[in-house]
Amino acid sequence: MKLKAILLCVLVAAGASMASAQKAGLKGGVNFTNLYIGDVDDVDDENMKVGFNAGLYYRADINEGFAIQPEFLFTQKGTEVQYDGLFGGSGRYRFNLNYLEVPVLAVGKVGNFNIHAGPYLGFLVGAKVKDVDDNGNINDVENLDRDDFNTLDTGVAAGFGLDFDTGTIGLRYSYGFQEIGKGEDAGQATEDSKNSALQLFVGFDF
């Protein structure tokens, strides 16, 4: 599954490079992320984590109504999980996961409006779990770090946007296929969950 996703991203990006570039620029925005188990409908909005996304995009027109858009992004994902301690203490675990992510999107255009969807490939560059107790004290969970999580994430993304003369603005949802926890501790802590993210973004052409 991972190899197929990588090959698909490479082939589609190569096809885009042979078309005429119409848009290229910088983009960034806000992430509203969570982790899901089994069915994505199980996501609990109360555990949502806010982060950011930033990077580059390149849009190549295939024809007037269709384009391919690869992107290279730094994106923050994760969640917050509530807990109740054995002796009355309570708090939450905050999972902070940072990825370099490459979505390759098919873009359908009607005037200035666009709908886009396609696969993404993500590489985990940093992971930190923090314990925030009921008094607001923040402590690192030392036994969990990047080595305890899967470094590769694959999934699909879909959304819509509005193009303007100097850039674009839009909303996108991404749905991960890979369980984020690799080791026994991380797997139990995350309950074998996967990434889920809603992105609000704005881009400006070079």
Rank of each mutant, 00 (worst) to 15 (best):
M1Y: 10
K2W: 03
K4F: 04
I6G: 07
L8S: 13
V10C: 11
L11P: 00
V12F: 14
V12N: 10
A14M: 09
A14H: 04
A19T: 09
S20E: 11
S20M: 09
A21T: 13
A24G: 10
G25W: 02
K27E: 11
G29E: 01
Y36T: 09
D39A: 08
V40M: 14
D41R: 13
D41P: 07
V43Y: 14
D45R: 05
D45A: 15
K49A: 07
G51I: 07
F52Q: 10
F52M: 15
L56W: 14
R59F: 12
I62R: 04
F66L: 15
F66D: 01
A67L: 02
I68Q: 05
Q69V: 06
P70W: 09
F72S: 02
F74M: 01
F74H: 08
F74R: 00
Q76R: 12
K77N: 07
K77E: 01
K77M: 05
G78I: 03
G78R: 10
T79S: 14
D84N: 13
G85N: 02
G85D: 04
G85C: 06
L86P: 05
F87S: 14
F87E: 13
F87Q: 11
S90H: 13
G91H: 13
R92K: 15
R94S: 10
L97S: 01
Y99D: 06
V102H: 02
G108L: 15
K109H: 08
G111L: 12
G111P: 04
N114T: 03
H116F: 12
Y120Q: 01
L121Q: 01
L121H: 01
G122D: 05
G122E: 05
G126A: 11
A127F: 10
A127H: 10
A127Q: 05
V129T: 15
K130W: 11
V132N: 03
D134R: 08
N135F: 12
G136F: 00
N137V: 09
I138D: 06
N139M: 13
V141Y: 07
V141R: 03
V141E: 01
E142H: 08
D145I: 01
D148Y: 03
D148E: 15
D148I: 01
F149K: 07
T151Y: 05
D153H: 04
D153N: 12
G155F: 03
A157V: 03
F160V: 04
F164C: 10
D165C: 09
G167I: 13
S174T: 12
Y175Q: 12
Q178A: 03
E179P: 02
G181K: 06
G181S: 00
K182G: 06
E184P: 12
D185P: 08
G187V: 01
G187I: 11
G187S: 11
Q188K: 11
S193N: 02
A197Y: 06
Q199C: 12
L200F: 15
F201K: 06
F201S: 04
F201D: 08
F204I: 15
D205C: 15
